[in-house]
Nucleic acid binder design. Structure first.
Length: 195
DNA sequence: CCCGTGATTTAT
DNA sequence: TAAATCACGGGG
């Protein structure tokens, strides 16, 4: 959870994201992530060192949570990595649910199957009851949201697929060619990846 | 394919 | 103060 965001992104694949609500565990295996590279990254919230009330927690030291609200409806969870004030993070885009699926279905009334539960950043936030109240928490000490390192080694290279990041607009002058950069990592053939 | 959604950011 | 943006999801 500290280090460069591409390395951290790959290390996060295959680990468990755990949320505890009223003593119950909701958890899933991380199957899709995206790296955001900070000031140089024209698609990152911290591009050019921009600092606003919304993105302030993205400048915290590695291991903290950056949770933001977007499109009037959805929360997205990032794992901040790197050092204080670097503004780099990994967006958690999808999980394969492993624990507390009954509670996830209760939070996500639109979900028709297990694959609908956490197959997108907004979906997993809803399934795990993640909102702005968790913005800025330290994932390494929090009892309500944390990562369990169930794998010691990164997954084999041939089980990971790399692509451009989702949802970025290349026509937007600010983003430009950064929309095409290969900074999305997901598990090959996994049914819980978004789209 | 299109559209709602509203907080947040950016332009006047 | 006003306008534009948006690391999305759901419905046709």
């Amino acid at each position: 959870m500290s280090g460069d965001p591409i390395t951290v992104a790959r290390q996060l694949l295959g680990q468990q994201l755990v949320r505890v609500v009223h003593g119950a565990r909701l958890a899933g295996t991380i199957v899709e992530v995206e790296a955001y590279l900070g000031a140089q990254d024209r698609a990152a919230h911290t591009f050019g060192g921009r600092r606003t009330p919304r993105n302030e927690s993205m400048y915290l030291p590695g291991g903290h949570a950056y949770v933001y609200f977007t499109y009037g409806a959805h929360y997205c969870l990032n794992v901040v990595c790197g050092k204080k004030d670097e503004g780099v993070a990994v967006l958690i885009r999808a999980l394969e649910p492993t624990e507390g699926m009954d509670l996830m279905f209760a939070s996500r009334t639109k979900a028709r199957s297990a694959a609908d539960l956490c197959s997108g950043p907004g979906k997993l936030a809803q399934a795990l009851q993640i909102d702005r109240r968790l913005d800025g928490i330290d994932l390494r000490v929090s009892p309500v949201l944390f990562i369990e390192r169930v794998r010691r080694q990164p997954l084999p290279e041939n089980s990971i697929v790399i692509s451009k990041r989702i949802g970025l607009n290349p026509d937007e002058r600010r983003v430009g060619a950064w929309a095409e950069r290969p900074l999305r990592f997901f598990l090959k053939d996994n049914l819980h990846v978004s789209r």
